[in-house]
Design a protein around this nucleic acid. Structure first.
Length: 746
DNA sequence: TAGCCATGTCATTCA
DNA sequence: TGTGAATGACATGGC
C-alpha cells in the first residue's frame, strides 16, 4: 500500500508538473489544506467513506488478489492511474474505440461524490487535475466573445485557467505565458492536442473551469447570476434530479458538452462518436483508446495484469450469468448499453469498468463501501445514487443500463431484449423468440436460484423434520429413542414436560439442548456463542410445547413474538402463575385443573405401551383418563397437522421447481429446434448451390446447356443423378402422393 | 373492520 | 380392534 501511495504521489507530482508546464499553477498544498479528499487521500491515505469501488462487478467475485477488489485504495489507484495515462497519452493520435471510462472523483463530505461521467455542473471534480466545471458556459462565451464558432475563437489562454489554475483570471494569461516560457516543443504539441480536444467540443476549457469553482468557493469574482444558477443546479442535484441527464458528450473526448455548445458542434468525428461514453473529467479519454506501446513501470505492468485478470473474471461472470446472447457476442452487450463506440475493439475493459461502477447506482451502493460507510450521512446517499444514475442517463440516454449491472431478474428482460441481435435469416424471428424465451427463463432461473436455495433449505428442514421426528435426533416418539433411554430415560422432550411443576409428578431436569432448541425456534441468534449448536438450524420444536420449556424457566424471556402481545395484555397478573397460564395451552390448563400427575408432553409423546404403563401406575378417575386421552389425541393430531402442512408446502415448492425445470427444458428444446431448422436451411442452400453448379455444367449432345426451366436433375434411388424434363419430373412427383394415398387406403 | 395467515382442533380415512 | 398418521374442514387469534 505504501508503494501504491508512493506511486500515486509520484504520479500526481508528474501530473502537477505537467500542468505547470502547461501554464497552470497547481498548488498542492492548497488542495490538501482545503480538505479536498482525493488528493489528500491519495497522498496521505484513504479516508473517504464515499469511495466508489470500481470493482463491484456483478458479484464481487474478485477475491484472492493482492489488492482486495473492494479496497478503496484501488479506486485511487484507478483514478490516478488513468489520469496519468491519459495525460501521458495525450500526445498520441487518438482513435476512437469502445472504451467506457468510469471515473471516480471525490469531494469533501459537504458536497457530492461523483463519478467521472457525471456532467452535472454542481459536481466539482477534485481529482487532482483540477479539471472541469461545466457550470459556467456563460463565462466561456464571454471569454470567447460570445462567438458561435468556438473552433475559430478558442482562447488558449482561457483554457489555461480551466486546467485547475487557481490564479485569478486576470493573471491567467500572464501565468500561462510564464508557464510557456519553459515549454519544449513536445510540451507545446501536447498542449495543442489537449486544447484540440476541447475545440472539438465546441467549448473552451474555460467551460469546465475548475478555477471558477475555486473562485466561487472563495467568494471571488463569481457573478450573482452564476451563483444563482449554480445553487439551483446544486439543489436539483441534491434532490436527485440531474438537470443535465440527457446532456450529450463528446464522442472523442468523452467530455460532457455543455448545452450551449451542443448545436455548434460540427466535428463529424464527434457526430460519429456521439454515443461515446462520457467522462466529465475533461481529460481526453481518446488517447487512451489507442494505447501505444510504451515503456511501463513494473507497477504499471502489475496493474495491467490485475486489470486483465479482473476483466477476465468480469467476462466470466457475464458469460455465465447473463443471457446466451452474450456468449461470444460482444454486440449483445453493446445493444443499448455498450454500443458506445466505433471500431471493433472489444469492450471487455469497458464492461468491467462499467460494471464496476454502476452497481453503485442503486441498491448495491451501500454494500459496496467499506464499513465506514455506515457513518456516511444519509443525506449524502441519495445524492450519490442520483449522481450515478443520472450519470448513466446522461451518457446513454434512456437506455436501461441497469440490466447489465443488476441481476437480470431485477431488470427483467428489457436489457436482454435490446441486446439480442437481429438475425437476418427468416428464422431469426423464431430464433429470437426462442432465445428470448430462454433468456427470460434464465432470468427466471436466476430468480429461482434464490428460491431454490430457500427451497432446499426448507426441504432440508422438511426432510429432517418429517413425521414425528421433528426433533429427529432425539424424538421421544422415536422407538429407538425410547428403547435406548427407557421409560425413565425418556429424557429429551419428555424431560421438558416435567418442567411444569404443577403438572409433572415425574421430575426431570431440563436439558440445555432441548431448552436451546426451544429457544432456537424463536431466536436462533441466541446460539452464536454455542459452536456445538452451529449445525442446529431446524425447527425441532413442534413436539415441545412452549409451556413446557418455559414453565421450568419462567425467568426466561418469552421467546415468541406472538406471545408477547398476550404477555403485554396480561402484564398485571402475578408473574409466575401468570406466565404459566399464559403459555399453557388449553389442554395444559385443563390438565392442571384436573391434577393430572404428568406432563402433557408425556401424555402425547410416550409410546402406547409406556403410556399405558404410566396410566396404570396412577390411580386416575374416568374424567382424568378421558382428558388424558383427549390430550394425547389432540396433541398427536396437532403434530400431524403441522407435518401435514409442511408437506403441503414442500409439495408446492417442489411443484414450482418442477415447473421451472420444465420451462427451462422447453426453452432449451426450442432453441435446439431453431438451431436444427437453421442448419437444415443452410444445408438446403448448399444443396441448391451444388445443384446449380452441376446443372450449369451439363451439356446436351450438341454442347448446349440445358435450360433450367425445362430440365431438372433427378436423384435416383441408387444414388445416381439423371437429368430429366421437368414435365416428366412433375408427373412423377404427382404419382407419388397418389401411391401413398393408395397405400394408406390399403 | 375485512382480509390474510398461522395454528389448533375435529372428523374421517387408511395402513 | 386399537393406534397412529394423514388430511380436509373449520375455528380462532394476531396482524
Amino acid at each position: 500500500m505504501l508503494y501504491l501511495k508512493k506511486y500515486f504521489t509520484e504520479g500526481l507530482i508528474q501530473f502537477t508538473i505537467l500542468l505547470s508546464l502547461i501554464g497552470v499553477r497547481v498548488d498542492v498544498d492548497s488542495y490538501l489544506n482545503n480538505q479536498l479528499p482525493p488528493l489528500r487521500e491519495i497522498i496521505l491515505g484513504p479516508s473517504s467513506a464515499y469511495t466508489q469501488t470500481q470493482f463491484h462487478n456483478l458479484r464481487n467475485t474478485l477475491d484472492g488478489y493482492g489488492i482486495h477488489p473492494k479496497s478503496v485504495d484501488l479506486d485511487h489507484f484507478f483514478a490516478t492511474r488513468r489520469l496519468l495515462n491519459q495525460v501521458r497519452q495525450l500526445d498520441r493520435l487518438s482513435v476512437p474505440s469502445p472504451e467506457l471510462n468510469a471515473w471516480l472523483v471525490h469531494r469533501d463530505s459537504e458536497t457530492v461524490v461523483s463519478t467521472s461521467s457525471q456532467s452535472s455542473p454542481s459536481i466539482p471534480l477534485d481529482n487532482g487535475a483540477g479539471l472541469e466545471d461545466v457550470s459556467n458556459p456563460d463565462a466561456t462565451l464571454a471569454m470567447r466573445g460570445g462567438s458561435g464558432a468556438p473552433e475559430s475563437t478558442y482562447n488558449l489562454n482561457a483554457t489555461d485557467s480551466s486546467l485547475g489554475a487557481v490564479a485569478p483570471e486576470g493573471n491567467e494569461q500572464q501565468a500561462s505565458r510564464d508557464g510557456n516560457d519553459d515549454l519544449t516543443k513536445e510540451d507545446i504539441d501536447l498542449i495543442d492536442i489537449l486544447w484540440r480536444q476541447d475545440i472539438d467540443l465546441g467549448a473552451g476549457r474555460e467551460v469546465f473551469n475548475y478555477s471558477n469553482r475555486q473562485k466561487e468557493n472563495e467568494g471571488e469574482k463569481a457573478s450573482p447570476c452564476q451563483d444563482k444558477d449554480r445553487t439551483e443546479e446544486q439543489e436539483s442535484w441534491r434532490n436527485g434530479v440531474n438537470l443535465q441527464a440527457a446532456q450529450p458528450v463528446d464522442g472523442e473526448t468523452g467530455e460532457s458538452i455543455p448545452e450551449q455548445f451542443q448545436a455548434p458542434v460540427v466535428n463529424p468525428e464527434i457526430g460519429a462518436n456521439e454515443e461515446a461514453p462520457s467522462t466529465s473529467q475533461g481529460l481526453s479519454m481518446a488517447p487512451q483508446l489507442a494505447p501505444a506501446p510504451e515503456p511501463q513501470l513494473d507497477l504499471e505492468q502489475q496493474w495491467q495484469d490485475i486489470m486483465a485478470i479482473m476483466e477476465l473474471q468480469a467476462m466470466e461472470v457475464n458469460s455465465t450469468s447473463l443471457s446466451p446472447a452474450a456468449d461470444g457476442a460482444p454486440e449483445s452487450n453493446t445493444a443499448g448499453t455498450f454500443e458506445l463506440s466505433t471500431g471493433a475493439t472489444p469492450v471487455n475493459q469497458d464492461v468491467s469498468l462499467h460494471q464496476a461502477s454502476l452497481p453503485s447506482c442503486s441498491q448495491d451502493f451501500p454494500q459496496m463501501f467499506s464499513p465506514q460507510l455506515g457513518s456516511v450521512p444519509r443525506t449524502l446517499m441519495p445524492r450519490i445514487s442520483s449522481s450515478n444514475s443520472s450519470n448513466i442517463t446522461s451518457t446513454f440516454g434512456t437506455t436501461n443500463l441497469t440490466g447489465l449491472f443488476l441481476p437480470s431478474h431485477v431488470n427483467g428482460s428489457s436489457s436482454n431484449l435490446t441486446s439480442t441481435p437481429a438475425l437476418a435469416d427468416p428464422f431469426s424471428t423464431l430464433l429470437e423468440e426462442s432465445m428470448l424465451d430462454e433468456i427470460s427463463l434464465l432470468d427466471l432461473a436466476m430468480e429461482e436460484g434464490f428460491s431454490q436455495a430457500q427451497a432446499s433449505q426448507l426441504e432440508d428442514e422438511l426432510d429432517s423434520d418429517s413425521g414425528l421426528s421433528l426433533d429427529s435426533s432425539r424424538s421421544p416418539a422415536s422407538p429407538s429413542s425410547s428403547e435406548e433411554e427407557g421409560a425413565v430415560g425418556y429424557s429429551t422432550d419428555s424431560e421438558v414436560a416435567p418442567a411444569e411443576p404443577e403438572e409433572g409428578a415425574v421430575g426431570g431436569h431440563q436439558p440445555g439442548y432441548s431448552k436451546l432448541c426451544r429457544m432456537s425456534y424463536q431466536d436462533p441468534s441466541q446460539f452464536h456463542g454455542l459452536p456445538q449448536l452451529d449445525g442446529i438450524s431446524h425447527n425441532h420444536t413442534y413436539n415441545l410445547p412452549l409451556s413446557s420449556a418455559f414453565s421450568e424457566h419462567p425467568d426466561l424471556p418469552v421467546p415468541s413474538g406472538k406471545k408477547t402481545v398476550r404477555d403485554k395484555q396480561h402484564s398485571k397478573l402475578p408473574p409466575h402463575a401468570d406466565l404459566l397460564d399464559k403459555h399453557a395451552s388449553r389442554d395444559e390448563r385443563r390438565a392442571r385443573a384436573m391434577k393430572i400427575p404428568f406432563s402433557n408432553d408425556k401424555i402425547i409423546n410416550l409410546p402406547v405401551e409406556e403410556f399405558n404403563e404410566l396410566l396404570a401406575k396412577h390411580h386416575l378417575s374416568e374424567a382424568q383418563l378421558a382428558l388424558i386421552r383427549d390430550i394425547r389425541r389432540r396433541g398427536k393430531n396437532k403434530l400431524a397437522a403441522q407435518n401435514c402442512r409442511k408437506r403441503k408446502l414442500d409439495t408446492i415448492i417442489k411443484l414450482e421447481q418442477g415447473v421451472q425445470e420444465l420451462r427451462r427444458d422447453k426453452a432449451r428444446l426450442l432453441k435446439e429446434k431453431m438451431e436444427f431448422i437453421r442448419s437444415l436451411r443452410q444445408m438446403k442452400q448448399k444443396m441448391q448451390s451444388l445443384y446449380q453448379e452441376v446443372f450449369t455444367q451439363l451439356r446436351d449432345e450438341e454442347g448446349r446447356p440445358y435450360p433450367p426451366s425445362q430440365y431438372s436433375l433427378q436423384y435416383s434411388a441408387d444414388g445416381s443423378v439423371l437429368i430429366a424434363p421437368r414435365s416428366l419430373a412433375t408427373a412423377e412427383q404427382n404419382r407419388k402422393p397418389e401411391k401413398k394415398q393408395k397405400d394408406k387406403k390399403k
